[in-house]
Design a protein around this nucleic acid. Sequence first.
DNA 1: TTGTAGGCGTTATCAT
DNA 2: ATGATAACGCCTACAA
Lengths: 342, 342
Amino acid sequence: MSGIEDVARGAGVSKATASRALTGHGYVAAATRARVRRVAEELGYVPSSSASSLATGRTRNIGVVMPYLNRWFFAEVLEGVQAVLLAEGFDLTLYDAKPGTEGRRRVFEDFLARKRFDGLIAVALEPDDHELERLVGIGRPVVSVVSDSEEASVVRLDDVHAARRATAHLIDLGHERITFLGGVSDHDGPHVDRERLGGYLSCMRGAGLDPRHIPSDVSLPGGYDAAVDLLSDPERRPTALVAACDEVAIGAIIAARRLGIAVPSALSVVGIDNHEYSDMFGLTTLEQSPREQGAAAAELLLEQVRAPDAARTEMRLQARLIVRGSTSPPPGVRSVAVGAVP
Amino acid sequence: MSGIEDVARGAGVSKATASRALTGHGYVAAATRARVRRVAEELGYVPSSSASSLATGRTRNIGVVMPYLNRWFFAEVLEGVQAVLLAEGFDLTLYDAKPGTEGRRRVFEDFLARKRFDGLIAVALEPDDHELERLVGIGRPVVSVVSDSEEASVVRLDDVHAARRATAHLIDLGHERITFLGGVSDHDGPHVDRERLGGYLSCMRGAGLDPRHIPSDVSLPGGYDAAVDLLSDPERRPTALVAACDEVAIGAIIAARRLGIAVPSALSVVGIDNHEYSDMFGLTTLEQSPREQGAAAAELLLEQVRAPDAARTEMRLQARLIVRGSTSPPPGVRSVAVGAVP
DNA sequence: TTGTAGGCGTTATCAT
DNA sequence: ATGATAACGCCTACAA
């Protein structure tokens, strides 16, 4: 393992010059720089990151705090973040903080306190817990994905808007009996689910329609189970479903098929996400791109890492409607209503 | 930010004693230790990881190299690894190395060379590329998950065995026209897929049956598309399917349902994985637990990190058959054959 | 049992 | 444009 001293000796200069030549900070004659770099190359010199972190105070490492790794949204965000960091030469260290676990406590108490990072990306921390504020308190730049924050920069989908658009799409098609599937309630459960439910409720009320919410686990099996329940009673059956997310929507489509209910002629379904499976199920949905959100968050963060006084930024993305085959006018309605519902 | 010097001063001892009291290395009077620790607590002392890494040569950080983050298997492995590391106070830095990308090259050339870790977990590196050997060459302990290696410790499923068991299960039930669905071929594509196909082939031949392989993308939509193709021709239709993995199997089940082919009465399907969705689809499968594999890999690695001369270990796991509703005797066969097929 | 002092490998300040 | 030299914060012989 050759250190910078070996490089310096090999190039016939001092450690200081070698360091300048290698990092690019400060004046070095072009010829010397070239010579130093060549020697470094020959020796296979790799700077010790702990030594340079100690000297500079910067780690070239970004921390990512996430409650789950094995869900589509989170894995996609992570890939987006990773791609940008990789390109910029930053490491990524992952802090898995499952809600309500001892491990999460440790992440906040012990791990994050070590500050082995120049900045932090926090994904979907629940705002109620004020954890985001604690992260900001650590004293490194923080970018929040999903959750709003007064202090940190934010990258997120406008979930209320997405749910309103989904609902409006069905209303435009002529549906009146539209049920929202998934989540706990509008005052409990994950914040995202609540906002989506809220968007649906306000859109329904604005159109003078009766809203109805069937709770379910926000997952494919959750959507399946709840939909089997809901759809098997012909009396209660709606003509359309707004799902809390694509996985729930797909669960519902699978349930409908099993029960012999044709989609979309007997039942329309809209999701939110544009999940990787949505295309295969012909699901009409509101697209959000978690990968791009992750990439945007990483870029925002690096800016702040480089210019510590950079302004806090907020990106609130509008989902784009992708119409596929899972939605159509309800049974008995043949023409499509015109005009957008707010 | 108080350093160890502040703690030492506060406790009325030297930096050396403070360090010993805090790390637990070397003799310190119980009373002094308590006092030092109390002062450290009061001051909110957090050791600088770069300084202690520089001094000790250890980072308390583990690197994980993975080709994908957004697939079920990989995300599960990662969660297993993370859980163990978290409990042991180790950080996890993630190196996303997508096959055949510029990013992957950089991971190997630049990032890993920095050695910001005490050990490495490599998941599903293709053996042909000899990347595993390069990782071992870095000079830190390496544990490989999935891929075999002469030099690194290995945690993996016995894929050949799993596929044989899956096939044998169908043969036991009386099936003869059994098709393998998924992957490229037995001499191309990811190694895992090849081994599974190989297990199927050898089991079929051993039973004197004609094997048949339908390639497909190893994913849910891939399984769906290939199955639609295969099943829509009644002439060619097999009575049973061994899928390269559960996602392919589920895709096939969905395809069968769409085509009105009853599972299992007209078509049996076996998968390999026990994916989170498998239960919902009543899929008979061979269970592997990627989360446990990840945890085992992490534990193995930490052992080696702590005792650098620890022996190389190899864990080859046997999948357990979980019989659900997707398999039954073929049409026309009512009793189940007895006796295992090798 | 505790303290002293040197070293870990870089970077950065200040002369030259 | 380059070279000494002092941090950076902690650990660990070795000495006391």
